[in-house]
């Protein structure tokens, strides 16, 4: 039988050991890697961002503000807001409907549907515009017929809206699908057993669960809708004051060597991008658990 050994409570401690951390890089290697990454990002991200504002403010705040006093610029801003105001809600409704069908039911061809929804992301913006020209243009499939009815799609607002909806098509749906998949249908089924109607289930059970994911998707969708260039460039026809969105206005000013004007308006778009990033980061930080875990593009 062993007798219990006795231990002094806190024995005098021998020397501390000057040995490097057992696992991981040395402090030097860490610093080098961090420096390399930060330098790369500074060069490729920070410098261009700083450039926009520097160039825009080159002639001072007066010139910067003057760029927005231009009637064409104002028309472009109104048009961009209008296009976003139509295409974002359209994709919001679609995204919710698609996510509801895909995550709450199982049916043949479900995976194919998911793939098809993602399709516009792999189409070049220019091609996204082109397809609508082929459909609705003067020599297009249905263009001449619509023209006879007095409906102009290409080189007009409907074309801009269609092209914008196309390029922002997947944003809301692909944000909602993983979230609703992860949450499962148990909550809605519980509401169903309590006798709730479909609309009640959606507004009082589903919506509160997905609202932050929905906002996240809308945020990204809106940023792209307001900033899209290639697709709208193809369908716009560049009619000043009529079919020029803000990014197209930037192009026109730039090509006319009105650099201060171009960069002033570009800096407004950059602010929009920064606000989007801040909100997005906030949502990820605050509601990260409720957002989709998948990589986002």
């Amino acid at each position: 039988m062993a007798t219990g050994e006795t231990f002094p409570l806190d024995p005098p401690r021998p020397r501390a050991l000057p040995v490097p951390p057992p696992i991981g890089e040395t402090a030097m290697a860490r610093r080098l890697l961090v420096a390399a990454a930060v330098l790369f990002l500074a060069l490729i991200l920070a410098l261009p961002l700083a450039g926009v504002f520097t160039e825009g403010l080159r002639k001072g705040w007066g010139a910067w503000l003057a760029a927005f006093a231009d009637p064409d610029a104002r028309a472009a801003i109104r048009l961009t807001l209008l296009v976003a105001a139509i295409s974002v809600p359209a994709n919001l409704v679609f995204g919710v409907a698609a996510a509801w069908a895909i995550t709450r039911f199982s049916f043949p061809g479900r995976n194919l549907l998911v793939t098809l929804i993602d399709l516009p992301f792999s189409v070049s913006p220019v091609v996204s515009g082109l397809v609508f020209v082929l459909l609705f243009g003067a020599n297009g499939l249905v263009g001449p017929f619509l023209k006879a009815q007095g409906i102009q799609v290409i080189f007009a607002v409907p074309g801009l809206v269609l092209a914008t909806i196309f390029v922002t098509f997947p944003f809301v749906a692909r944000e909602l699908i993983p979230i609703m998949q992860a949450q499962g249908a148990a909550d809605e089924e519980a509401a169903l057993t309590l006798g709730a109607s479909g609309w009640t289930i959606f507004t009082r059970v589903t919506l509160p669960n997905i609202k932050w994911g929905l906002l996240y998707g809308v945020l990204l969708c809106n940023a792209r809708a307001m900033g899209e260039f290639g697709a709208v460039s193809v369908v716009s026809g560049h009619i000043r004051g009529l079919t020029n969105t803000v990014p197209l206005q930037v192009e026109i000013l730039y090509n006319e060597y009105d650099f201060v004007g171009a960069f002033a308006i570009a800096s407004a778009l950059a602010v929009l991008a920064l606000v989007t990033l801040v909100l997005k980061t906030f949502l990820e930080w605050r509601y990260g658990d409720e957002l989709a875990r998948s990589a986002r593009h």
Partner: peptide, 23 residues
């Protein structure tokens, strides 16, 4: 820095284009 990585997704391509050209 982490948040800034998404800047190219958020910044309109035309803005990136003219800025890079100017730089």
């Amino acid at each position: 820095v982490d948040a800034a990585v998404d800047l190219p997704f958020a910044l309109p391509t035309a803005v990136a284009g003219i800025t890079l050209a100017a730089l």
